[in-house]
């Protein structure tokens, strides 16, 4: 009897300990969001969204150029990464090749684990060195490379979720395979693919390391895709490690805007699938 009670106690104790672990995992979230809201909200104002950064020593100004820069970089990355990623995912799901899909799948997972700063070096040697200039394009390429494996693997999973019966229904109508894939399979998987794409965008929106020596940053408005371009994460980094209080305030404001952007995209991604789950299952 006593051993049973002892065992029950151990069990309850472990439940409490693991709950405490879960609590301490969440604690930083509360702290970080608390400070972001407290510090960020205090520093944020209309100028922040409409003005260029002020030169050192002058108070005020904003990060309008960095916000726009980040949107441009995300657009470029999506333009490059999404089509290749989605087609690659379709390839993995549909192909009957023997060895290549396995290799592609493995490399996609490998690429997913490559540190983003290394991807930055890759984009640097690929784009910056030949162009002899930091540029928005280089930053877009770096982010696209990071997006690619995520998009490839989620697309593959979503296409695989489409029931074989729909594919067969299409084929039995005397429709060529590629049209069945394009017009029946992909539309059915659309919600899931869109979610995957948005998850990928949310993931790269906050990336800083790969932009350090590709997009490089810029204190002025966007000047063309072949020129260095500002980005919100870069600006936050630069301001955070600078010795000026006003810049620190702006860094908090920038971080708040960045996190809202990232969470908005992530939440939208969730909503897209929730509304359309019935379509796939």
């Amino acid at each position: 009897m006593t051993t049973t009670r002892w065992r029950q106690r151990v069990s309850s104790l472990m439940a409490i300990l693991t709950a405490a672990a879960a609590g301490s995992v969440i604690l930083p979230l509360v702290l970080i969001f608390g400070f972001l809201l407290w510090q960020g909200a205090a520093a944020i104002n209309v100028d922040f969204f409409t003005h260029l950064p002020k030169p050192v020593g002058e108070v005020g100004g904003g990060m309008a150029n960095a916000i726009i820069g980040t949107l441009i970089l995300l657009g470029l990355a999506s333009l490059l990464g999404l089509p290749i990623g989605i087609l690659g995912g379709v390839y993995l799901a549909e192909s009957r090749d023997r060895r290549l899909p396995w290799i592609v799948r493995f490399l996609a997972d490998v690429l997913n684990g490559v540190p983003s700063i290394v991807i930055g070096i890759f984009a640097y040697t690929l784009v910056v060195l030949p162009m002899r200039r930091f540029s928005a394009v280089a930053g877009g390429v770096a982010l696209a490379v990071i997006m690619l494996p995520i998009v490839v693997r989620t697309t593959e999973e979503m296409v695989r979720l489409v029931p074989a019966s729909l594919r067969e229904a299409g084929l039995a109508l005397g429709v060529p395979e590629w049209k069945v894939v394009l017009r029946v399979v992909l539309p059915t998987a659309r919600a899931g693919i869109v979610t995957g794409a948005m998850v990928a965008v949310a993931r790269v929106a906050g990336e800083t390391a790969p932009l350090l020596f590709t997009a490089f940053g810029n204190r002025f408005w966007h000047q063309g895709l072949d020129q260095p371009i500002a980005a919100l994460p870069l600006q936050i980094f630069a301001y955070a490690i600078a010795p000026y209080d006003d810049w620190h305030r702006q860094a908090w404001a920038g971080a708040l805007v960045l996190i809202v952007l990232v969470l908005a995209v992530s939440l939208m991604a969730r909503l897209v699938t929730r509304g359309r789950v019935g379509a796939v299952r």
């Binding site: 979230l29 949310a202 800083t208 390391a209 980094f237 955070a240």
Partner: peptide, 8 residues
Amino acid sequence: LAAIPSVV
């Protein structure tokens, strides 16, 4: 928590 960017 996993979605918070590194720079933040």
